[in-house]
Each structure stands twice: as structure tokens, then as C-alpha cells.
Design a protein around this nucleic acid. Sequence first.
DNA 1: CGGAATGTTGAGACTAGTCAACCATAGTGG
DNA 2: CCACTATGGTTGACTAGTCTCAACATTCCG
Lengths: 248, 248
Amino acid sequence: MAYAFNAFAGDGPGAGELLSARFPHFDAAVVPFAAGQEVVGDGDPTENFFLVVRGLVRAVKFTRDGRRQVFAFYMPGDICGLEPDATHKLSIEAVDQVAMAILPRRACRLRMDVDPRLNVALFEGATRALTLSIDHMLMIGRSSAEERLAWFLMMIRSRSAPLGANVVELAMQRQDIADYLGLTIETVCRTFTQFKERGLITLPRKRLVEILRPDALRRLAAADRDALSAPSVAPNVEPASGLDVAAA
Amino acid sequence: MAYAFNAFAGDGPGAGELLSARFPHFDAAVVPFAAGQEVVGDGDPTENFFLVVRGLVRAVKFTRDGRRQVFAFYMPGDICGLEPDATHKLSIEAVDQVAMAILPRRACRLRMDVDPRLNVALFEGATRALTLSIDHMLMIGRSSAEERLAWFLMMIRSRSAPLGANVVELAMQRQDIADYLGLTIETVCRTFTQFKERGLITLPRKRLVEILRPDALRRLAAADRDALSAPSVAPNVEPASGLDVAAA
DNA sequence: CGGAATGTTGAGACTAGTCAACCATAGTGG
DNA sequence: CCACTATGGTTGACTAGTCTCAACATTCCG
């Protein structure tokens, strides 16, 4: 599987920035992918890392009987494709029109051996990714449908919107949200409707959410995540945790 | 949170071996912990890595309203405590009588900067940990109770028993299993009973499981995991995936 | 033996899933 | 311009699996 590190825009120079500074390759090959197109598939050899330049990317895994789990969404600045094994175990797919910079793993590994800073950055990126996947797991394992959707909305908001903006664009479709949250598409719909009826949000368009009561949603979302109350990070700031990271 | 790398016994020298070879500190301080004792808690500063020397360790996270998720079990040879942030976000607790070697992070980091091999080993450990957490997440998000328990049993069997052994000791109690699988304790019990009635297992003691039909359990467990069918690793071998890894 | 902790079983409630119908939107071609 | 279709999204009725609450059994330990 390819796991993506998160660039963590507000977090000083993240892995993405570090890499792009260190790797001319990033600029060398930027490849476009159409919506729904597979970047790498389950079983493909792990030859490259990928830096998302434009669009939205998802990392998914299928079961034999067709169930699907979305492990992460990647936005511009995120890196995916980090994976220990010789073959990918997650599929990386373009959600909409996407551009990805191709970063040959061989070159990366060579650099990693020589450059301790890059090494540390990648290592920290990987452990951070693990941290985020744990938030995701806690949410999936121990939350109700409404808690999951609230968590999702706050996560997307903190990632994609300028801080404080309360209108979020959902590039992914309902099925992706459902598979990310471990729910069915119907439950996601119903929960959206319920949020509307409770005055928490409005839906100007299907893929556009206006958050009317961010505090209420945050409270819902926080029920099973400590991030909001964790003292180490600035309190009362939306956790960047949603930035899931997945191996590609 | 502290994430533990897995030593991967059958996988050549794992991170644990590498570290113990490289770090005299490993032998320097081996600390015992009583059953139930907390090694590090949520919010504690991240000062050390830990190598499990004896016993069973769990990494858990609590929600404000008391729900609990177990993210990983660590067995002798596993390392926990890997975490990017300054404070732990998971608690590390001894399940039974445990001995842990204390590995100062400062010393590790210094070494990591100088020794590329250690660095690569740790990095691969982290990405592998992420891979494993994804298996865990897929299981929690998309499986029935019986699939989860079957998955759990096959995981424990592959980790703790000599290959092929069909009697597995469960050092953890039912509540730990439930919180690991995202179920309630009652559902875990009922599923055990159901497995007994179907002739899949016997329970000579509460904490001792004899697996009568490993293939049937494996089929159940495999419904939402590719590991069994993945071609990159030896096929038809129990996946070592269960070896969850958590940051401590 | 007594008590506490752990584990099991049962009955009923409730959440989310399933199956199915319907609606909205966008694109296509007559 | 208007069917017609395809896709994506919503809603409803019903079901099923898991949770909740409660009682009871077992094991452990002083």
C-alpha cells in the first residue's frame, strides 16, 4: 500500500515541501489523471511515490466479496505511495481531475540514505500518518453515524477551507464518504438530511456544505477523539487529524 | 501516540533485533510492570521507545465519554513508543506481568541521523505499521462480528503460536478483545459460543482457545482482507498483519 | 468461604443495513 | 426543444445484527 504523508501546511515545512525542495524529479513528470482513473492498483509494483499537485485522490481497498474501504483522501501537497512492500496493497484513484508528480522511489531511497534530514522528515511523516490512521480507526470503531459524519465534515473543513471558512466543497461522491466512514450511502444521506433538519448545516448543492453551527458539529465529532482536548496542540483548533495518510 | 514497530520474527532481522544490536541501552534498563499498570499515558511527554521483553502490552485510547479503543497488542520483540509529537496520544498499558526495555528517544534520534541503516529500518517499520493499521481498520469498518473474531484468532495464532500450532493462549481479557475489534464484550462472548457450537473451536479454559478448523476460520477472516491472497508474501500463510503496531 | 472480578447468557431495543422506489441533474440525440 | 437515458442522490419500509440492560455463572484470591 502506498501511504501518503501529509504536508501539514501550517506545520512548518512538511514532507511535501521538503521533498519538492530536494527532488528535482517532482518537477520532472507531472501526470494528469481523469476522474475515476486508477493511478496504481492492488498488486502493482511499488515504483514511485506520488505528490498530489491538483485535484482529489483516494486510497481504497476492496474485499473479495466487493466491500470497499476508503482509507484516505489526498489533496494537493499530500504524498502517497509510501509502502514497505514490493507491491501496492491499496489502490490509488483519482476522484476528480487530478495531477500527480511522479517521484521514483529508487531516487528517494538513495537520497534517504545520504540525507539525514530527509530521512527524519519521511520517518516523522510515516509515524504521523500512523497517528492519523488511528484517529480514523477510533472513529470507525466507536462512533455513531452522526458522529462519523460530523467528524468527516470538520476534517474536510480543516483541510480544504481557509481557516474559519464554513463552506466546504465535497469533491467526492456520497459512496466515497460512506466507504471512508464505514457506513452505507443511505445512512450518509439520511445523516446529511438529519443535520439539515437540526439546523447544523445547509446543502446549497449536493456537493457543497454550509456549516451553520460548527461548534455543535465539533462537539459531535469530538465524542471519540481527544484531538480537540489534547493540550499539546493548540486547543480549540480543528485537529488536522483528518488528513489521513495512506500507502499507495 | 506511540506506535510500535513489529519485530517480524520470521522476516529476517526486524526493527527490534536491529535496535537491540545497535543500542546498548536496550540492556541497560529493563523495567517490570504489573498487570494493568500504565507505562505511559495520554499526554505524557514522548521520551522513550519501549521494547517488550516479556508479557503482553496494549495501546489504548479513551474518548471523553468513556468509550475505549485498543489499537494494538504488543508481544515480546515488538517496539512501541514511536510517535511524532511531543506527547503521547495513546496510553500504553501492561496487560499481564510485563518487562519492557527503555530506549531513550534522544539517543535513538542521534543514532538515526548518523546510521542510515537504522533509519531505513525505522522508516520501514513505520510504514509497515501503517499497513497493519489499515488491515485493522478494514476489519473494523467492514466486517461482521464473526469475521472480526475469526480474524483476531488467526492473527493471535500467527503471532504467538509456533507455526501450525492450534492452541492459542489469550493473555488479554474479553473486554480487551472487544475494544480491539470494535465490539461489545457480550458480542465477543456470544461469538465465541457460536464458534464452539459450530465446531470451529473449543475453549478448554476461558483464556485458552483450541482451533479445530483453522481453514474455516481463515475463510471467515479473509472475507475482508487480501493478506491471505496477496501474492507478494508467501500465499496461504497466515498474514503477520495482525501484528499491530501502535505509537506509544 | 466469601467477595470481587471476569465471563456468559437472555430478552428486548435500537441503529444502521437492505431492498426498492423515487427525484435531480446532466448529457444525448431525435 | 423535448424526450430519453445515465448517474448520482434521497427517502421509505422493513430487517437484521449488534448493543443495552440485567441476571447469572465462573474463576480467582485473600
